[in-house]
């Protein structure tokens, strides 16, 4: 069939997913702004969704789409709690630079 011949190969989606995941990891490791770190975590979650849906299409299943739906739920929960924690921290100490939060260290 024509449509199947023109499909994007699975490898392309997997490499795109890996690229975005690594960008997210670098963001978490390198940036010190708490909000940007959260955004990088969102990038990682989205990168995983790409792989899930790519395999889904390849195997003609719906399980991966359900799983990426659950990932979105977890992302929403994580963001709401995380931003609430940032607000609570900001009340204690008016900065969101992660290097300045070392209460639990010593």
């Amino acid at each position: 069939m024509d449509i199947e011949m023109e499909m994007v190969p699975l490898a392309h989606y997997l490499f795109l997913s890996a690229t975005l995941f690594v960008i997210g990891v670098v963001g978490v490791l390198v940036r010190r702004n708490a909000i940007v770190v959260f955004m990088s975590i969102e990038i990682m979650l989205n990168a995983v969704n790409i792989s899930l849906i790519a395999f889904d299409r390849y195997l003609s299943l719906h399980d991966g789409q359900i799983f990426s739906f659950m990932v979105m739920c977890v992302a929403a929960a994580e963001v709401s709690v995380g931003l609430a924690i940032i607000i609570a921290l900001f009340r204690n100490k008016p900065t969101i630079n992660l290097d300045e939060f070392n209460i639990m260290k010593s």
Binding site: A77, S80, V81, L83, A84
Partner: peptide, 17 residues
């Protein structure tokens, strides 16, 4: 999970830590 996150966010953002 979403309900727990919602309650947690309200409690965390409301109280002074």
């Amino acid at each position: 999970l979403l309900l727990v996150a919602m309650i947690g966010a309200v409690v965390l953002a409301k109280n002074k830590v």
